[in-house]
Write a protein that binds this DNA or RNA. Sequence first.
RNA 1: GGUCUGGUGGCCGAGUGGCUAGGCAGAGCUCUGCAAAAGCUCCCACAGCGGUUCGAAUCCGCUCUAGACCUCCA
Length: 502
Amino acid sequence: MSLKVYNSLSRKKEEFKSITDGHVGMYVCGPTVSGESHLGHARPFITFDFIYRYLLYLGYKVRYVRNITDAGHFEEEGREAEDKISSKAVIEKLEPMELVQKYTNLFHWAMNQFNNLPPSIEPTATGHIVEQINMIEEIIKDGYAYVANGSVYFDVEKYNTDFSKKGLPYGMLSGRNIEEQLDTTRDLDNQEEKRNKNDFALWKNAPPEHIMRWKSPWGEGFPGWHIECSAMSTKYLGDQFDIHGGGMDLQFPHHECEIAQSTVCNHKTPARYWLHNNMITINGRKMGKSYNNVIKLSELFTGTHPLLTQAFHPMTIRFFILQSHYRSTLDFSNEALQAAEKGLKRLWEAYENLMKLPSSQNNSQTPTDEELDKKVKNLIAEFDEFMNDDFNTAKVLGNMFELVPIINGIKNKQLAADSLSESTIQLLKQKLKIYFADIFGLKDDGVDNEQLNGVLQLLINIRNEAKAKKDFVTSDIIRNELIKLGVQLKDEKDGTVSYSIN
RNA sequence: GGUCUGGUGGCCGAGUGGCUAGGCAGAGCUCUGCAAAAGCUCCCACAGCGGUUCGAAUCCGCUCUAGACCUCCA
């Protein structure tokens, strides 16, 4: 059984084979820290987090590189090209690096909330200006870029002509044919500098008011749209690496340009497998700045957004994303998120129940219900199978939910304790823990507060005494008032009382 | 205009030829002082029209429809 991944480059599922045995190099396009991350951004970072975690589970040593874009890509709104980061800094009266730091911190905070593992290396664009300049020089030397008024442009046409002969045409990732591109009537800044409309900037000459600027062989300026990813992936992962990831919307032009730049410099396609996650939609539309329909992560966690009826816990978001396949669109709505919240709770509680099941209460290795035992073993075995099929977390969760009634049934004695063999229960515990915590990265931020526990236990005791005296008025007050406070008491089958906090 | 991807039960979402996931919501039952929780049962959908096939949500064609990219965007 081997891992198969959908490669955007070939548009097929392919068997995954790493370049170096036992090692994986993975590059994922990170955030532009000129603003706060929104729900749409959460998708790739959670997606590639569980991919990273799964590769680790398979035993690979993974170098996971995710950049921070802090040098400012261009926003070409109509006429004026301006560096996003420097212009916003003026508005907010902050130093550019102060702004960048603020949003980097916020990003890290959000990643932490989602329980995403930090990448192995998180390089910044501003920290790699030298590498980017070196790479641009190489491209010029090879004749695939030209200088115009202190800016440098990549010669797409020449690249396409030469590399098509090698079977590496420009547009191979996104299935584009450069002759067929739409003629934009839009006026882009400095378009006349380009030899061809498809050419893209490697280096931009900085106008005087531009704050972020570096010296280069072509004058003072700043790096172009795509060069940082090429420079940094090459530096940390080599000429060719295993996986390049990002959102589908980056396929063109960003990843296409990356391929062109890197191929010129390194004489080979940078990544073997290109993985792209799909978008989160809201009312059927992609969530994105251009649509003005973004919900920021902080708003999501606090419920402060007109579209939200309540706050949603980061783990609910994570679970919501895990419930669909990463290449499908995922439609946001309060209802969908509420369903995810309840589903996660049910799964979480079953998981806890399982972990608390006493082990080896009987020595019987033969289950009394062989059919059920077999079913459980099969459901567990399918976890790996589903993940190996292009990381199908949705199907794994489906199986987990099928295990829930079995686990709860044993716990609540609706099923005999020895229905399953001891070894199956052990296997279940072991695998579920790995999948739940290690691969899916679901964690309990459980209130582990001794004082609160003590207070609740006291109330439970009082209620028990009231019940013993058939003073149901008192016992019901305790139960009903607690539920209003988000604490749900559960009368267990064995007479004990447990609770869950919402 | 080009390239591409979708349209699945009240909602969300798996599923690429037969065994018809799963979650949420809803209904009934068991348990319970009553509830809740838990368990059991029910709710058998695949945009439309043709075609291929013994058999299609799944393949092919057409139609309708939604969306993505072609411009910063996860």
